[in-house]
Design a protein around this nucleic acid. Structure first.
Lengths: 189, 189
DNA sequence: CCGCAAAGCTATGGCTAATAGCCATAGCCG
DNA sequence: CGGCTATGGCTATTAGCCATAGCTTTGCGG
């Protein structure tokens, strides 16, 4: 049979395409194989761990992309300006790739590679917090606060949980305002 | 064959037990049927919509429980006191029933019953916000802010996304502080 | 006491992931 | 250049899942 030149990266690419088009639920080995022009079992030659492994790869990739978007957004900015850019980039990524973002949370968290990617994401946040004079334990609490608000809004907004008619952009502005005020008044223990 | 006296409510009960024990992924008709002492197809006599219907029922029930917990927590409290109780109840519910909370839909739901339950939950939040003089459109933005922070923290905390050693209880206190300060200084348009 | 709707069942079909084992290709190396 | 090994395909199979169709039994209400 003619080799189709599949690689692990190629399989991941098809997986991401599938997720983007039809949602995380649609990520099946059968669908990926069909898209790659290959029979399902052949995928195991490239992704030995099967579906769980593929999901893991997706989570790592998305986390990396998100961390990269955040890092780029805060370049050359500080304090409130950086926080606004950070939230904008976070929520913007989730809005541009809602299914991809939704594929994030149900990943196994004990994976080393995923933790490394997540650490980079947190690192960007912590770097921004230094502009508020925060470090050490309080920086961790503040980073969690930032992450919780960003994730909460992104998750609810992309999930369609905000039913009422009010403008989501305004809500995002309010969220940024609450966050920046909170960070400026943070108890610098 | 002896009738086992199954009812829709009974099926839902088994489904919730299963989710509590093994996670939302473990919710299968086969497992529910085994637990109920019944063959899989028999479930369709009580839950005609099959697995999607069962998942829907779970989501409605969990939303109702959460709304109820919030309503009870804010009874007799107002302003910062109410917000603290609200977040505590929300996060507490998620921590006591992490799988159940994780079973809440992350996909857009146009189900009427679910929307009604969600509306009750939002109603409790909006009621608290009246203590800050907020209503109308700004109350919606503020409610979204509260919901985003609560969901974001609950989701990340129960999902194990906060890896570092710092105390989650302290983070929650900081979150409450940021939120209450933000609500007190809300732009009452 | 009997009819009949409700509630159980088995059988079947069509998905899925995953494993086992076979065959064709590619590219290296003597 | 010939052959060998590693690799990347394949088919077949197993096991588990949801779902539908259609039969049988139960037990309630008239």
């Amino acid at each position: 049979m003619p080799r189709v030149g599949l690689t692990p990266a190629g399989v991941l690419g098809h997986a991401l395409d599938l997720i983007d088009e039809t949602g995380p639920e649609a990520l099946t080995l059968a669908a990926v194989a069909a898209r790659a022009g290959v029979a399902t079992p052949s995928l195991y030659k490239h992704v030995s761990g099967g579906l769980p492994e593929l999901r893991r790869l997706v989570a790592v990739r998305v986390t990396e992309e998100l961390a990269e978007a955040l890092a780029e957004a805060v370049l050359g900015r500080s304090r409130d300006d950086a926080v606004e850019a950070l939230l904008g980039a976070y929520i913007g990524y989730a809005e541009r790739h809602p299914y991809r973002y939704a594929a994030l949370p149900q990943a196994p968290q004990e994976d080393a590679e995923l933790r490394r990617a997540a650490a980079r994401l947190v690192g960007v946040i912590v770097a921004v917090l230094r502009g508020y004079g925060l470090d050490g334990t309080e920086a961790i609490h503040a980073a969690r606060t930032v992450r919780a608000t960003a994730h909460g809004f992104a998750s609810l907004a992309t999930g369609g949980a905000f039913q009422l008619a009010a403008d989501l952009v305004v809500t995002q502005q309010r969220l940024v305002r609450v966050l920046t005020e909170g960070l400026r008044a943070w108890p610098t223990a």
